[in-house]
Design a protein around this nucleic acid. Structure first.
Lengths: 336, 336
DNA sequence: GTCGCTGCGACACGAACTGTCGCATGCCGG
DNA sequence: CCGGCATGCGACAGTTCGTGTCGCAGCGAC
């Protein structure tokens, strides 16, 4: 019963977005495997019917014709999006624009468009949500590097399907070079996406910034599986000079009252405790990982935090402050 | 032609997710306004047909029955999700978990589930994407506060539809109190969501952290529209003690080579220039906004950055460093 | 109880969905 | 240049199945 409607929905999900395309023949095969065997003629008819209701485009420049969703079509999700979800999508978009290259965020664009559409339908058009929502980030917006969407897609495919990649890579300094990579993982830091991969038959693993690839070809060759490789362990060993140290240390630090207060809202850990120190400051105690990020975050408070424990961290912070102060005691260097 | 299939798709989008429900009658009305008038009997039949293919649930505890999508149903988007997009969704989820309260991220969960499903179908199951993607955040993960999803939804509705809210609010310190709020905007900072609103007939605008509402009722009363109110201006005037200053200043700063290098990848501004200073450091010049966040970000580099221009910022940084160094020259206070 | 609403089985009519056939068109190889 | 092959599409006929209507039953409310 109602095979038609279900088949059409399935069909709409099988049709890709515009740069890519699918032929009637291919659709027929995929539908058959999904349990909707039907004749090619019927599929042709269905496509014509659907294109009257959805932004489907048919590229008839060569045979067989290629069907796609319009490049500009927004997503339509089943079930439809409710307004709280739509607002969350819009907030997420704002965040992600600072965190990911534009072409990556672009991939989610059809969903963000759907969210905006939902909001416009919900609110009385005049009061646009855009005037109503603001995000105050902690750091100034850094501009994510530009990543070529085609190449990015091929890198992702290679990683997910376990295929080798033939690439050309231009390091930050030095000559462009060809590599034959077995993808092992993906890592993000500071809006830069890195492919973690091994070259040819070497066992060591290197990282490549996605935006510095100048050519990427996806091969059918299965990628080498490095037996003992573990992305977390690799990062911890310093793959990103991140030197994650999993051992939690007991942080004790005094924050000036005004800045420390936000730690009451967004605690460092579930086991965090805060007490009023005698000197008007807030003393925060929490088990945290002893990482680079911790230092980064603590230093950002400048003189508004004083680390008490652990001793080695207090010493580090003291030295850093001392060196920084010395920096400014010297005469200002001549700007270039 | 093919009215049926289109109507069914429309129907699937009108059915809400499980806590909410829709009756056959209501569906009929909504469908009619969308240009699909049909009899109630047909809708009943359609629902039965669809529930064989989609996770629809029918709550038959009372009449009229209420239809919903299962609480656990993943989203299905038209067109379907391709793997690069799916991977982006998964990365986005990881980011957002640090940025937004759990219950807010929860709203996007059906979409993330769809993304994971897509990835599992794409890769050969064994090599799960979760072992392959890592995100290295700059700051230690702060735990976003818990927000009640119901209250959050009502706050969003009030904001978007311009309705007043009757709320109870428990400030960080002090007594719980009742307010009658006209929502003016939403602001996010540090994983905390703030409603910016005016109370009763007062013209001044106050902020309320979403997670500190203890009760929220959405009324039908239209919200007061504050004539000259502008969220950006309000933030700039110090609504968040953010003191945004729109005037860009010419930042000149020297970064240690290793840390400064990442600015080549993720520049501060499109008009940023970088040159090798004589002393082995990188001198970065860029027009940036003179904000709190800028200071926060610069301080995080500690002694690895020296601000040269503008003069007032150099002075500030110098003073902060000096005060921080003094902090650590004193004997360590006794931890509590 | 009785009225009204709602769900649902049954039924009959007709719309429209489907496979088949045949022709036209375009591409490719000989 | 020509014939074979693949693809798109109009036409047609059979029949499936989608639809409105009707009637009955269960459930609440008054």
């Amino acid at each position: 019963m109602s095979r038609t409607a279900i088949r059409m929905i399935e069909m709409l999900r099988l049709i890709p977005r515009e740069p890519r395309r699918i032929s009637v023949g291919a659709l027929g095969e995929r539908l058959a495997t999904l349990g909707h065997p039907t004749s090619a003629r019927t599929i042709q008819r269905d496509l014509n019917t659907l294109s009257a209701h959805f932004p489907l485009v048919c590229d008839d420049r060569d045979h067989p014709y290629g069907w796609s969703w319009s490049r500009h079509a927004q997503a339509r999700s089943l079930p439809g999006m409710d307004t709280p979800t739509a607002l969350t999508f819009c907030m997420a978009e704002t965040y992600l624009r600072d965190m990911l290259p534009a072409s990556v965020v672009e991939l989610m664009q059809p969903h963000f468009r759907q969210a905006r559409e939902t909001l416009e339908a919900a609110g009385n058009g005049l009061l646009a949500w855009e005037d109503k929502v603001r995000i105050l980030p902690r750091h100034p917006p850094l501009l994510p590097p530009e990543v070529d969407p085609e190449r990015m897609a091929r890198v992702y495919e290679g990683l997910l399907r376990g295929r080798r990649l033939e690439v050309r890579y231009r390091p930050r300094s030095g000559e462009e070079r060809a590599y034959y990579l077995s993808p092992q993982g993906l890592a993000l830091r500071d809006a830069v996406i890195y492919l973690v991969a091994s070259h040819r038959d070497y066992d060591d693993v290197v990282m490549f910034a996605l935006h510095r690839f100048t050519a990427v070809t996806l091969t059918d060759e299965p990628a080498r599986h490095l037996a003992g490789f573990d992305l977390d362990a690799w990062i911890a060993r310093g793959g990103f000079d991140a030197h994650e140290n999993d051992a939690p240390v007991g942080l004790v630090a005094r924050f000036d009252a005004d800045v420390g207060r936000h730690l009451l809202e967004t605690p460092l850990s579930e086991r965090q405790t805060v007490r009023e120190a005698g000197d008007g400051r807030l003393e925060v105690t929490a088990p945290v990982k002893d990482t680079h990020q911790l230092r980064w975050w603590l230093r950002a408070f400048g003189p508004q935090v004083e680390v008490l424990e652990p001793a080695h961290l207090r010493r580090e912070m003291a030295e850093a402050a001392e060196r920084e102060a010395r920096l400014y005691r010297r005469p200002r260097p001549e700007a270039g």
